[in-house]
Amino acid sequence: MLKDITIGQYLPGHSFLHSLDPRTKIIAVLIYMISLFVVNNFFGLGFMLLLSFVVVLTSQIPVKFFFRGIKAIIFIVSLTVILQMFMTPGEIMWQFGIFKITKEGIHQAIFMGTRLILLVSVTSILTLTTTPISLTDGIEHLLKPFQRFGVPAHELAMMMTIALRFIPTLIEETEKIMKAQAARGADFESGNLVQRAKAMIPLLVPLFLNAVKRADELAMAMEARCYHGGENRTRLKALQYTKRDYVAAVLCIGMVAGAFTSRFI
């Protein structure tokens, strides 16, 4: 059941998107996000929606993965939509006691809902088509210019890599410990809130202890191999922009231009 978590999941493939440089993809996603908030009318929103369809099709990733991602945020989306609908002041369309729906509210609700869904879908395309390792590589490179302002780019990237690396391990271990305690009569599923919180102790204590122990061992192993941070470190696979990345850059410029133009329609 814990295996259903799809955050940061990567699906191997050979699409155009898979072969792009991670830096290109990260920047493109950022530009897409900005464009999402630049557009302010239905032409613009339709344009962004269309773009996301094209990107999803290009990625060759089964559509069900996006639906799963959307299902995970359905609660947040509904909450946003409802709040926007009732809380935005403006021309009243429908009223019942203190509850009123305004024309502006509906407009806002549609916008925010769509934006959220598109945000999540496009971000998941990034993680679905990029291995965690190259993703952190890309982030490290993009943060490099900020190093002179004290941003520890390499360390941040290394921490992310390690964290991503250990998510599956921790999930696996959680399942194992849950089973082992269930074999001793532990019950994680029934009871009231307090009882359930208490039932987590036999799970959390061993989990944390093992995590700390593992972190210790990892640190030791890294030190034994003379790891000492990013200084003068070279890479086995250096990142390299290719022709595809320039194509993608041109398309991104087109996207921004489209988003701005749509404001004047």
Partner: peptide, 29 residues
């Protein structure tokens, strides 16, 4: 629960399941 009382299962490396403050409490779980 009753079934698991009848069929006791000891996992591989069971020492990773210990969590109580004392030996007595852990066995009593």
């Amino acid at each position: 629960k009753e079934l698991r009382m009848q069929v006791g299962l000891v996992f591989q490396y069971p020492e990773y399941q210990l969590f109580e403050e004392t030996v007595e409490n852990d066995i009593a779980f």
